[in-house]
Design a protein around this nucleic acid. Structure first.
Lengths: 184, 184
DNA sequence: CATGCCATGTAAGCGGTTACATGATTGC
DNA sequence: GCAATCATGTAACCGCTTACATGGCATG
């Protein structure tokens, strides 16, 4: 069985939904997965091409009224099999997420206290903004989402984002506090 | 002022410490920054070359007894200035950290419950192992570190790792719980 | 004399972004 | 006629990993 990159599996996964074209895939990711995934057209179209070449999906050109034609992709049994195999497989190893702020803090020894404080406070503020957008999205889903089944998965991934962001905010608060106390 | 990538700034930062060679830089990152940064020789040596070309550092070949010669790099005033400017600058925007588990969960709608549960449990276990290594490192630092100043920064970045990991573990627990309840 | 650590480097290739090119349709 | 949205695609480039190549020195 051939191995593919995460982007390919993400696209295969999306092709199980109503989103069948490159443009629609981009929209779905930007709107629904944007807090833990992103993608560019420069990846999407070549990947779709490859998916068809490998017999994981088939293209059909759909003519819609009032809009340009779109190429719609449909998973083949082989494509579904490939996706399923990946879904069942546990994650190999936890990735190291690079953190620019931690890096700056680490070298902050050789920098002024105000400067380090400013960077941390700015980071905290950005995290708080992100948290707020998560809360807003959550409210929007909870209040008007018809599809209960979809809503659960949505809220679950959103919950991850909220928890992770909150933990980072708490860390900022605590670090700023002890950093202030620390005499230089 | 020219812009550099994060790797370049990371190396400039390390060159302010006692680590002055490519090999030593790799060691420091693997040992001390491994929970939020990583690097390969394939980046280090070409980047060091570029750093010298741009006048941010100078090389001197140091002969040590009992070991092969090593090229040691020393920051120039221009290099120090470049580093400082970066350190002062707040992070532009929070990166989207791609999460394979969330992706799998999101497409889990079309997968068996056992399969999704297994992936989540495996993820949780890996997170717990990571947490434990953080705790162990923390203990090691607290018990025998002579340099108080260094220890604070060390523990601070480690604290971030602990909080982030713990938040992810909690999310796993909660998700597994509600997922179990959820009838299909 | 083999293993392991110290040390430096390069080349191929992957994954991804950005910028660009093209063009249809809709609504102001 | 112009802007916005829908829609597909490519080329250049960046960042990074992996695999490979080379060789000194030390120890058992």
């Amino acid at each position: 069985m051939k191995k593919y990159n995460h982007t390919t599996y993400a696209i295969l996964g999306i092709l199980t939904t109503d989103c069948k074209s490159g443009y629609a895939i981009k929209q779905l990711i930007d709107q629904s997965l944007n807090h833990f995934w992103k993608i560019s057209y420069g990846q999407i179209y070549p990947t779709l091409k490859k998916i068809v070449e490998d017999g994981l999906a088939e293209v059909r050109t759909a003519a819609t009224e009032g809009k340009p034609d779109r190429n719609e992709y449909f998973l083949t049994p082989k494509g579904i099999e490939t996706l399923k195999r990946w879904l069942e497989q546990p994650v190999e190893q936890l990735p190291v997420e690079r953190n620019e702020v931690l890096l700056k803090l680490f070298f902050g020894r050789y920098q002024s206290k105000q400067s380090t404080t400013r960077v941390l406070e700015d980071y905290k503020q950005k995290l708080e903004e992100r948290y707020q957008t998560y809360v807003n999205v959550e409210q929007a889903i909870k209040s008007h989402d018809a599809n209960q089944e979809d809503a659960w998965y949505w809220l679950c991934t959103l919950d991850y984002g909220k928890r992770a962001t909150l933990a980072a905010i708490d860390w900022c608060t605590a670090s700023l506090e002890t950093f202030k106390r620390k005499e230089n």
